Amino acid sequence: MTLGWIISLVTIFLITYGYDQTAIDEAYPDSKTEFMAYYGLFRNCWAIALGFIVFASAKGYGGPIGSFLACSAFEPLAKMTYGAYLVHGITMYYFFVNISYRIAISHALVAFIAISNVWISMALGLLVIIVFEAPVAQMEKLVFGHLGLSKLPTVIKYKTE
C-alpha cells in the first residue's frame, strides 16, 4: 500500500510540475516524442493516481488524506456539485443559443461567461437538490422504514496503520 501511495503522489507531482514544453523545444527543436507521450498519457495517469487515492481512502488506508476526504462538511457540497453537473449543459445551451448579436471575444468576457455559468449552475444545482433529491430521500426513509429496511448495512472499517 505504501508503494502505491508513493507512485500515486510522484505521478501527480510529475504531471503537475514535471513537464516544460519550452525547455524541451529549446533542447530538442525537432523532437516531438516527449510532447506526444505527455499529452497522450497524462490524463490517464492522473485518473489512475487519483483513483488509487480514493480507493485507498475508502478501504481505510488514507491516513490524513482519507480523514480529510471523509469530512462530513463535504456531503452538502458533493450533492450540490452533482446537481450542478446535471444542469450545467442546459445552462450553457440556454446561454449560447439565446445570443442574437455578435460578440467581440476577449479574455475578460470569457472569464465573465465562465464564472457566470459556474454560479448559475451551482444555484440551479442547489435548487435541484432542494426540490428533487431531498424529498426523494425522505420518501425512501419512510418507505423503507415501513418495510423494516430502515437500517442500511454497516460499512466495514479497516485498520489504518
Rank of each mutant, 00 (worst) to 15 (best):
T2P: 05
T2Y: 09
W5V: 06
W5E: 07
V10M: 05
T11L: 02
F13E: 14
L14C: 15
I15Q: 03
I15P: 07
T16N: 13
Y17S: 11
D20C: 00
T22M: 06
T22R: 05
A23T: 09
Y28N: 14
D30V: 09
K32G: 11
K32A: 10
E34F: 03
E34M: 03
F42C: 10
I48N: 03
I48G: 09
I48T: 10
V54H: 00
F55P: 09
K59C: 11
G63S: 02
G63E: 12
I65W: 02
G66Y: 07
S67P: 01
L69N: 05
A70R: 06
C71H: 13
C71F: 11
S72A: 13
S72N: 08
A73E: 12
A73Q: 08
E75M: 03
E75R: 01
P76N: 11
L77Q: 03
L77D: 01
A78N: 06
T81S: 05
T81L: 06
G83N: 07
Y85R: 08
L86P: 01
L86D: 00
L86Q: 02
H88E: 04
G89R: 01
I90T: 04
I90K: 01
F96S: 02
V97P: 00
N98H: 14
S100C: 11
Y101H: 13
Y101T: 12
R102H: 15
I103C: 06
S106I: 04
A108V: 12
A108R: 01
V110I: 03
A111C: 07
N117V: 11
N117H: 11
V118Y: 06
W119C: 15
A123T: 14
L124S: 10
L124G: 09
L126K: 02
I129V: 14
I130Q: 14
V131F: 08
E133T: 07
E133N: 07
P135K: 01
V136C: 07
Q138K: 05
E140V: 12
K141S: 11
L142C: 05
V143Q: 03
H146M: 11
G148N: 03
L149Y: 10
S150Y: 12
K151E: 05
K151S: 08
L152S: 08
P153K: 03
V155Q: 13
I156C: 13
I156W: 02
K157T: 10
T160R: 15
